[in-house]
Amino acid sequence: MTHQPLQTLTENRVGFITLNRPDRLNALTEEMLLLGIETLKGFATDPSIGAIVITGAGRAFCAGGDVAVMETGAEFGPAGTPVEAQIEILRTWHEFPRLLHSIPKPTIAVINGVAVGGGLGIALSCDLRIASDKAKFGTAYAKVGYDGDFGTTWQMTRLLGEAKAKELFFLPDIISAEEALRIGMVNRLYPHGQLIAESTKIAERIGAGPSISYRYMKENVAHASTVGFAESLDREAETHIRCSQTEDHIEGVNAFLEKREPVFKGV
């Protein structure tokens, strides 16, 4: 199945998505993105999956748009495609990062190599980013006369602040994994040879956790970035009480009192 531009696997309550164009540094294609959208929608409603991991095959996470396709003028449809139609094509592709950001399950980018342009946007749209010490990051848009897509503008502004986001857009230098960790672009960094094992441990730990609680945590954090303190408190009151009605809450309390590990079921 190495010819498939996107590969999937489910194991130990984790859904894995691998961008699979290693010869092109996993540069994005329409087929890859549409398969990714379909896969994420399926993972979102599958009760056997508690966490989702996205990574890249080979030595890259994702190089974003394929410059070879850009050269042909057919990146967003065949030559001659009207501008409005091209806009709608890109909006369709943007469903991929939107789902990574919004589906009710934790999403984890395991960044094994270069993540630039749209690839950076995909990584930033995940809830967590775990990187190899060999990973490299960059916006790259200014180098080809673009401005930004795949959520890079929104995500970098919120993660890094306006000043740093502008710097990384205006001066599209490649930054190291260590610098990405320092500025808060990634959550954790591991030696390259340990990346898969360590990130899988984290994904499986989250996958086995209280999925209803994680859903509300994810929603509440996103909500908190757009509303005031009072509104956030109001929402916490609602979701906290909803969590208190779950079997997972009861199991967590009992496990704590019995000094054992809880066995959550997502109900």
Score class of each variant (00 low, 15 high):
A79E: 14
A79M: 14
A79H: 12
G80W: 01
P82C: 10
A85P: 01
A85L: 13
I87V: 15
I89Y: 08
W93G: 05
H94Q: 15
F96P: 00
F96C: 02
H101M: 10
H101P: 11
I103E: 06
I103M: 13
I103Q: 05
P104G: 10
P104T: 07
P104F: 04
P106L: 04
P106V: 02
I108A: 11
A109I: 11
I111P: 08
I111M: 10
N112H: 08
G113I: 11
G113E: 02
G113K: 07
V114E: 12
A115R: 09
V116A: 15
L120G: 00
L124P: 08
L128K: 05
L128I: 02
L128E: 05
R129S: 07
S132Y: 08
A135L: 09
T139V: 08
T139R: 09
T139D: 06
A140Q: 06
A140N: 06
Y141C: 08
Y141H: 02
A142Q: 09
A142N: 02
K143Y: 07
K143W: 05
Y146D: 01
Y146L: 12
D147I: 12
D147A: 14
G148E: 03
D149Q: 04
F150A: 05
F150E: 09
G151L: 07
T152D: 04
T152Y: 09
T153K: 13
T153Q: 15
M156G: 01
T157H: 10
L159H: 08
L160Y: 05
G161Y: 05
G161Q: 02
G161L: 08
E162F: 14
A163K: 14
K166I: 03
K166C: 10
K166W: 01
L168N: 08
F169T: 11
F169K: 03
L171Y: 15
D173Q: 14
D173E: 15
I175G: 03
E178F: 06
E178C: 01
L181F: 00
L181P: 02
R182H: 13
R182A: 13
R182S: 07
I183R: 06
G184S: 01
G184M: 01
M185D: 07
V186S: 02
V186H: 03
P191N: 11
H192C: 00
H192Q: 10
G193K: 04
Q194E: 15
L195T: 05
E198P: 05
T200N: 04
T200F: 04
T200K: 12
A203E: 03
A203L: 07
E204K: 13
R205K: 15
R205V: 11
I206L: 12
G207H: 11
G207Y: 06
G207T: 05
A208C: 12
A208M: 11
A208Q: 13
